[in-house]
Design a binder for these strands. Structure first.
Length: 499
RNA sequence: GGCCCGUUGGUGAAGCGGUUAACACACCAGCCUUUCACGCUGGCAUGCAGGGGUUCGAAUCCCCUACGGGUCACCA
């Protein structure tokens, strides 16, 4: 029993080509949860071998996204670790060493075909309806033939010699045993002509050297796995346990493409819109995983609970459909549970950007904004909605909806409004919700109108809408002057408004 | 085209040979409320893609078909 058996080690290995995608985040989350569940280690490794596609700050974006979600790691490019470096391109000497072993053992050979030649071969096979597969034409080149190619100036890539007639069995925690025939796999390139490894080779060397015990990733990698198993064997490494989660589909049930606009795909876009990290985390884990037993009836899970509950065996084989409605419901749930101060903090940038409040409100303004946010908190699916929701507080004159006009054309309305104006004019002091309540009570006494006949006209005259949050708080927040202005405006222009 | 994977209500999803086929979202109805929202209560699959088997008994096991997806890159 070696130490590999003792500790569970998982990793998330993104290529630094862009922001953290929901699919990647979910894969990272599953890996993370499994490691934490087993008191193991979670590694974030950067697979940057495709240098043409690398994006400058993508690596940092990936890490930032994970951090925001609350996914922390034990080893990576920033904190280092016993298996550093954690960036593929800084590990090329390691790949080279292992490549040499393969060559020495006859498991790998140089291939002098050019990209154009290979592409031509593939096109031909496709046209004939044959499975595209490398023909193996460089497999048995003599030293003389190789020398000839070299003299032509061709630099070889290195291919792995796939054994014939092998049945490869993969032990997958979510799918059980999956079998592949080696004959369906052509010799594949493990090192490019310029010396960089390809993904299939780099992951194997990295996962093995980093002592990864569980490789958790998306289904698109399942067909790659037999190639990797072959590499593990040829290199004399233990094969890790695999877990291939299904893909995430868009609401139409189609595979999510990067340019799919039916669903927001990047974690930071959710962050910008005011989704809470715990909502996203909760939502992500439910995308292809369900807890066992009694817990299966629950939907709300904290990170801590998930660490106790998570199991790779419970990951679904069937694809998961991204359900925006469910995400919004979850986020609304967490927003309702959050303190108003926290939501206010998140709302301020949105309101400030819309020019409604100052960048960094303090004192009275701060207090006012907090009350405003509190008024709408329970109906926010995401924080940025606060801007549209609170519009009525910032415009000069309300926009009267048709329903409001109908309410306002009732005969008792002018009397009620006039009475409220009087009450307000006579009022001095701070217009708290309780004071508003008292004022309305006076209007009731004076006019004899109560209930809907009293409150609806007031609401409609002040906000232009037949519905909205608590009237007393609304009036209090709007302030005496603004309310008076609107009430007077309504009476003066009643005919025009009611059209 | 070969090889792999999948298919439970409008949606997510539990279910692992015997259940009234959980639960949640959405939706509908009612209650609550001065309105909306929140909350609460109730309703919502004659049926588990289709067809064959196996079995006393199948959403659950096997086979075939259909459909969806993945992969066959000097991309991960």
């Amino acid at each position: 029993m070696n130490r590999k058996m003792a500790e569970v080690r998982t990793r998330y290995a993104p290529s630094p080509t862009g922001h953290l995608h929901i699919g990647g985040a979910r894969t990272a989350l599953f890996s993370y949860l499994w490691a934490r569940r087993n008191n193991g280690s979670f590694v974030v490794r950067i697979e940057d071998t495709d240098v043409e596609r690398n994006v400058a700050d993508a690596e940092q974006k990936q890490l930032d996204g994970l951090k925001w979600l609350g996914i922390d790691w034990d080893e990576s490019v920033d904190v280092g670790g016993p298996h550093a470096p954690y960036r593929s391109m800084e590990r090329v000497d390691l790949y080279q060493q292992h490549l040499q072993k393969l060559i020495d053992a006859g498991h790998a050979y140089p291939c002098y075909c050019t990209a154009e030649e290979l592409d031509e071969e593939r096109q031909k096979q496709l046209a004939e309806g044959v499975a595209p597969k490398y023909s193996g034409r460089c497999r048995h080149l003599t030293e003389a033939e190789r020398e000839a190619f070299r003299r032509e100036g061709r630099t070889p890539s290195i291919r792995f010699r796939v054994p014939e007639g092998r049945i490869l069995t993969i032990h997958d925690e979510v799918r059980g045993e999956v079998r592949f025939e080696s004959d369906g796999i052509g010799d594949f390139i493990i090192q490019r002509p310029d010396g960089r490894p390809t993904y299939n080779f780099a992951v194997v060397v990295d996962d093995a050297l980093m002592e990864i015990t569980h490789v958790v990733r998306a289904e698109e990698h399942l067909s790659n796995t037999p190639r990797q198993v072959l590499l593990y064997e040829a290199l004399g490494f233990d094969v890790p346990t695999f877990a291939h989660a299904s893909l995430i589909l868009n609401p139409d049930g189609k595979k999510m493409s990067k340019r799919d606009e039916s669903v927001i795909q990047f974690i930071d876009q959710y962050r910008e819109r005011g989704y809470l990290p715990e909502s996203i985390l909760n939502f992500l884990v439910l995308l292809g995983w369900a807890p066992e037993g009694d817990k299966a009836e629950e939907e709300i899970f904290s990170k801590e609970e998930l660490i106790n509950l998570f199991s790779l065996k419970r990951v679904s084989k069937a694809p998961a459909v991204f359900d925006t409605g469910k995400l919004n419901w979850l986020n609304n749930h967490y927003i309702k549970k959050s303190s108003t101060e926290r939501i206010t903090e998140l709302a301020i940038p949105h309101l400030a950007k819309a020019g409604r409040i100052s960048e960094n409100p303090t004192g009275d303004e701060r207090q006012w904004v907090t009350r405003l946010v509190g008024l709408y908190q329970e109906q926010l699916d995401w924080v940025a909605q606060i801007v549209d929701l609170t519009e009525v507080f910032f415009r000069e004159e309300p926009v009267y909806s048709d329903e409001a006009k109908e309410v306002l054309s009732a005969e008792q309305v002018p009397e009620v409004i006039a009475s409220l104006i009087q009450q307000l004019e006579a009022f001095t002091g701070e217009l708290t919700p309780d004071e508003v309540k008292a004022l309305l009570k006076s209007v009731q006494k004076e006019t004899g109108h109560k209930g809907k006949k009293l409150f609806m006209p007031v609401r409609c005259a002040v906000t232009g809408e037949t519905h909205g949050p608590d009237l007393r708080e609304t009036i209090s927040l709007l302030g005496k002057e603004k309310v008076l202005g609107r009430l007077r405006g309504f009476l003066e222009q009643r005919d025009r408004i009611l059209g």
